[in-house]
Amino acid sequence: MTDIVASPDWLADNLDSVRVVDVRDAWEFDGIGHLPGAVNVPFEEFRSDAGDEGMLPGADVWTDLLESVGITPDDTVVVYDDTHGVFAARFLVTALAYGHRDVRLLDGDYSAWTRDHETTTDTLNVERSTYEVAEPAEPFLVDFETVREALNSDAVLVDTREQWEYEEGHLPGAVQLDWLELVDDETRGLKSREELASILEDRGITPDRRVVLYCNTARRISHTFVVLRHLGYEQVEFYEGSLTEWEARDGELVTEE
C-alpha cells in the first residue's frame, strides 16, 4: 500500500514523475522560492463556505483549479506548505474527497526541504489539462447526524484543537489531541512512528477503534487524518462540518471547569 506521506528524499528522487503543489500564498511562491517543478494553488483558492459541504470549494471550482495548473486525475500529486503541512493536508483531503486517487503530503514543509534540497524561483509553464472529479475511493466524510449517533457508540471522537479551545467547549466524550503534538519541532515533519503510536495510544486512539475527527473548520483535522492514514488506521471518519456546523445546529457541547 502506498504511503500517504512522502519523504523529502523520495520526492527529490521522483520530481520528474510527480506533480508538486505549493499551497502557500503567491507572494511566497514567487518571492521566496519553491520546489522545482511546483505549481501554486494558494490555500484560500480551495476553501469556501459557498461550495459543497463544510469548507469544500465545490466540484466546479476544484475542477477549474486543477485544470489551470495542468493536473490530471492520473497524476501522483505531492503537496507542501511552510506550516508543518497543515494547509497542504487540507489540499490532500480535498483531493481525496473529490476522488483523486494518488495524493501525498510532503513530510515536513518548505523550510525543512531547503535544508538539504534545492529550490527555485523559475516559473513552470503548464498547459491546461482536463480534469473530472469522481467519487472517493474510500468515503470518509461524515455528517452531523452520523457524528451525533457516534456519541452513543464505542467510537473515539478526537478534538484536534488546542487545550484551551477544548476546555471552552467540546463534543461529549471527545478526547483532546492538538494536531501539533504529532509534529517534530526539529525536523518540522512527523514524529517517528513509535512516538506517534505512543501519543495516540495514551489518548485511547488505537488502530482497532473507529475514529471520528473534528476541529473548528476541518483544517487541523486534515493533518491528523493524514497521520492516521500514514499509520494504517482503517476506520477514520472526517467531520467536514466540524464545530462550525455542530454549533449552528445546536449540537451538545461540554465545557471543562
Rank of each mutant, 00 (worst) to 15 (best):
T2W: 02
V5M: 11
A6V: 11
D13C: 04
N14W: 09
D16A: 15
V18D: 04
V18Q: 00
V18N: 01
V20I: 15
V20L: 04
V20F: 03
V21T: 08
V23S: 02
V23W: 07
R24S: 04
D25L: 04
W27P: 00
F29Q: 01
I32Q: 08
I32D: 13
G33P: 01
H34R: 14
H34Q: 14
H34A: 06
L35C: 03
A38P: 03
A38C: 08
V39I: 04
N40E: 12
P42H: 07
P42K: 09
R47W: 00
R47L: 00
M55N: 07
P57K: 03
P57V: 10
G58M: 03
A59E: 15
A59W: 10
D60M: 02
W62D: 02
W62P: 01
W62K: 00
T63N: 06
E67Y: 06
S68T: 12
I71R: 01
P73R: 13
D74V: 11
T76R: 14
T76G: 01
V78P: 01
V78G: 03
D81R: 07
D81P: 02
D81E: 03
T83S: 10
G85K: 10
V86F: 09
L92H: 10
L92D: 04
A95P: 00
L96F: 15
L96S: 10
Y98P: 07
G99H: 09
H100R: 00
L105H: 06
L105F: 08
G108R: 07
Y110E: 04
R115S: 10
E118T: 12
T120R: 07
T121S: 11
T123E: 15
L124Q: 11
N125V: 14
N125E: 15
V126G: 07
R128G: 04
R128S: 14
S129E: 08
T130M: 02
T130I: 09
Y131R: 03
A134E: 10
P136Y: 13
A137T: 14
L141A: 11
V142A: 06
D143F: 11
E149I: 05
E149L: 12
N152L: 07
S153T: 15
S153R: 10
S153M: 11
V156M: 06
V158A: 03
D159M: 07
R161I: 06
R161E: 04
E162W: 12
E165L: 12
Y166Q: 09
E168F: 04
E168D: 15
G169A: 13
H170V: 01
V175C: 11
L177K: 05
D184A: 13
D185G: 09
D185A: 13
E186Q: 13
T187E: 06
R188H: 11
R188I: 01
R188V: 08
G189D: 02
E194Q: 13
A197H: 12
S198A: 15
S198C: 01
R203H: 12
T206G: 13
T206M: 11
P207H: 10
P207S: 09
V212W: 05
L213V: 13
N216E: 13
T217W: 01
T217V: 09
R219I: 13
I221H: 06
S222F: 13
H223N: 02
F225C: 02
V226R: 05
V227F: 12
R229S: 08
L231Q: 08
L231K: 12
G232I: 01
Y233W: 04
E234V: 00
Y239H: 07
S242G: 10
S242K: 11
A248Q: 15
A248M: 08
R249H: 09
T255Y: 02
E257S: 14
